[in-house]
């Protein structure tokens, strides 16, 4: 009853292999719910869109609203700011994007107010471009929310949004 028992199960043994394989599948299937439970739940997903009243925003002003737990900047740009954003040569940009693509309605810039470096909220009307400046690690964004200087890798993200009417934007 001693040495031969210590022998590992025979590798060619079909039934043991099949059992192990079936067991692995079962364990995998059982683990998935334990992982998936941490994903956004049904009630969180249902809140994916928000409507914002923009009737009170004057040219040059910006408001910040909360969407999916993150700040969204809604800026009503002046003609000057639009011109400066549209006159930039794409070659000068770290992350080349046309302002026309970022702001379909040139007067309104809607973007996630989250620095693409490490997630801080940039300050408005600050920095080298007098637009946005992230105080955490010194990223400068222009009047189109594009990264111009500093460690952030990409422009601030533009979420999906639609103008429901002249006074209301639906984000998400």
């Amino acid at each position: 009853m001693s040495e031969s028992d210590k022998k590992k199960p025979n590798r060619r043994d079909f039934i043991l292999t099949a059992t192990t394989a079936a067991g692995a599948v079962g364990v995998g299937a059982a683990v998935w719910p334990l992982i998936d439970q941490m994903n956004p739940d049904a009630s969180v997903k249902a809140l994916a869109s928000t409507e914002v009243d923009i009737s009170g925003v004057e040219p040059g002003q910006s408001i910040t609203v909360l969407w999916r737990g993150k700040p969204v900047f809604i800026k009503r740009r002046t003609q000057e700011e639009i011109d400066s954003a549209r006159s930039v040569d794409l070659k000068d940009l770290k992350h080349p994007e046309k302002d026309e693509d970022r702001a379909k309605n040139p007067e309104w810039l809607v973007m996630l107010g989250v620095c693409t470096h490490l997630g801080c909220v940039p300050l408005t009307d600050k920095g080298d471009y007098n637009a946005w400046f992230c105080p955490c690690h010194g990223s400068h964004y222009d009047t189109s929310g594009r990264i111009r200087k500093g460690p952030a890798p990409t422009n601030m993200e533009v979420p999906k949004y639609v103008f429901l009417n002249s006074k209301t934007i639906k984000i998400g």
Binding site: M1, S4, D5, P9, D13, I15, L16, A18, T19, A22, G23, G26, A29
Partner: peptide, 21 residues
């Protein structure tokens, strides 16, 4: 269904292993 199948597999594995003694 899965548990029944794997129980049967484990049962025969057990028979096999215990047949060594």
């Amino acid at each position: 269904i899965y548990l029944v199948i794997i129980s049967i597999l484990v049962y025969f594995s057990m028979k096999k292993i215990w047949s060594r003694i």
